[in-house]
Design a protein around this nucleic acid. Structure first.
Lengths: 113, 113
DNA sequence: AAATGAGTTGAGTATCAACTCAACATTCGT
DNA sequence: ACGAATGTTGAGTTGATACTCAACTCATTT
């Protein structure tokens, strides 16, 4: 999950037939920055920038965010909304869930309302 | 939840009869830093420092972490462990759970294994 | 072959988080 | 009232994050 952010972005961008310059303009950064990110010469951008990139490319942001190990400020807010939330997150952190278990939790979440 | 971190810390520390200097030494920071934090002259410290503070004062860290809006790097890792995890967190973020619901989710989590 | 478009690279910058250090003020026990 | 403990303040530091700018290279089109 570590070093693949750049290549992954490059692949997505190419699949959408967008140049670095075009993407950069849509996102509002310098095109050379995109280049460096794609080649892992720089670390992945801030969470908000990743989200903008995904919007510009019209793809969901989960995969890129996960590969970058970044959490948006909105998510941070949700997680720290209350002590109960933090408590829950602490439990989750010790449990190392599988994808399957994450899915089940999502189901439970829906049943909650 | 915003501006109360400092006063809260001050209250906890006082209730434990610990001076700023003593706390600072236990945690490994300058005592003047504690002072500024308590008076909201500086933003709350890094998540790891908050955790150390709570250990030094022998109180659980959830409340302080929640008030500070900080997420430890360990938690960040858990949240971005996989796209499924990010997806789940995104759902959570849109739902604005109550404390009660957080509790139920914790129960579900336990039943998962 | 010259211009155009796409991508890469090196070096530098801006902003911010998370503090420290030294000086001063306040509170409190005796 | 005095001194020691405790708390506050201003100014500066350190390291990391998140980029920009200018100069190139390489491939393609005309």
């Amino acid at each position: 999950m570590e070093n693949k952010f750049g290549p992954l972005l490059k692949e997505v961008r190419r699949s959408k037939q967008v140049s670095q310059r075009e993407l950069a303009e849509r996102v509002g950064v310098d095109f050379s920055y995109i280049s460096k990110i794609e080649n892992n010469r720089l670390a992945p951008p801030a969470a908000d920038t990743i989200i903008k990139i995904c919007e510009a490319l019209e793809v969901p942001s989960e995969v890129l965010l996960a590969h970058a190990g970044k959490v948006s400020s909105e998510m941070k807010d949700a997680i720290t909304a209350s002590p109960a939330a933090v408590r829950f997150m602490n439990e989750i952190k010790t449990m190392k869930l599988t994808d399957d278990e994450w899915g089940k939790l999502s189901d439970n979440l829906k049943k909650l309302r």
